[in-house]
């Protein structure tokens, strides 16, 4: 069954849809966590520490966190690999363009591929910046996420990269969520409006929620 899935274009789209939904659910939890930064350093840092102790005493320190990280890594790799392979197939299936060109599809739909590449690069930077601290501006302090976030968004490029990526994320979710519903066969004529609304609301709330943090640092609300 796994073989049939991966070998078929429809099956590969299913892999994309499922991995996309997993990442989307994670993002909802992520944005809720991020917003705690507006309640002060103490609450935000405590939340950061709690993430490592989730599931104790059943789970050892950081086990749950690593479990989530592994699931996310698998989701990202599956999503990107299927996207790459499907895109290759699509480009091969339409080698010659029409001489008479027309603007096609919505902006969100047309930017899925490059938007996805931008998001992939962003994730690498984001992890190196705020998880490992490798490319963090100003001394990265383990266990002090509040200060680390403030440091990142005190640089102009930190703000630009982050905000650009979050706009790309909004567009990606807007088309991606609704598409995933069609791929998984849960879309229908009666549900179409609801699905499109949920996609737009999710895209808007996630983008606004994530962008609130750098805007907060820039305006001095978070410092």
């Amino acid at each position: 069954m796994a073989r049939t899935m991966w070998d078929s274009s429809v099956g590969k789209k299913t892999v994309m849809a499922v991995s996309g939904v997993i990442m989307l659910l994670y993002l909802v939890a992520h944005v809720i966590g991020n917003l705690k930064i507006f309640f002060g350093a103490e609450e935000f840092n405590r939340y950061g520490h709690w993430l490592r102790t989730v599931g104790e005493p059943f789970m050892h320190y950081e086990w749950t966190l690593w479990l989530v990280r592994i699931v996310l890594l698998v989701a990202v790799v599956a999503h990107a690999t299927s996207a790459y392979q499907l895109s290759r197939r699509d480009i091969k299936a339409r080698p010659s363009k029409y001489v008479h060109k027309k603007p096609r599809a919505s902006y969100a739909t047309r930017t899925m591929r490059w938007g996805g590449v931008i998001l992939g690069l962003f994730i690498v930077w984001h992890v190196l910046d705020l998880t490992t601290g490798t490319v963090h501006p100003g001394g990265f302090q383990e266990g002090h996420p509040y200060q680390n976030v403030v440091d990142t968004f005190s640089t102009w490029y930190g703000n630009v990269v982050y905000i650009a990526a979050m706009l790309a994320l909004g567009l990606h979710i807007r088309h991606g969520f609704w598409s995933a519903a069609q791929t998984l066969g849960v879309g229908s004529r009666t549900r179409d409006r609801a699905l499109k609304t949920i996609a737009n609301v999710l895209a808007l709330l996630l983008t606004a929620g994530f962008i609130a943090v750098p805007v907060g640092v820039m305006t001095g609300v978070v410092s």
Partner: peptide, 23 residues
Amino acid sequence: GGCTLTGECATACPKGIPLMSIT
């Protein structure tokens, strides 16, 4: 190729086969 849900097919279809057909 594969479907990326652009909806171009259903717009072009002279017989009005809906995009939901793919779903």
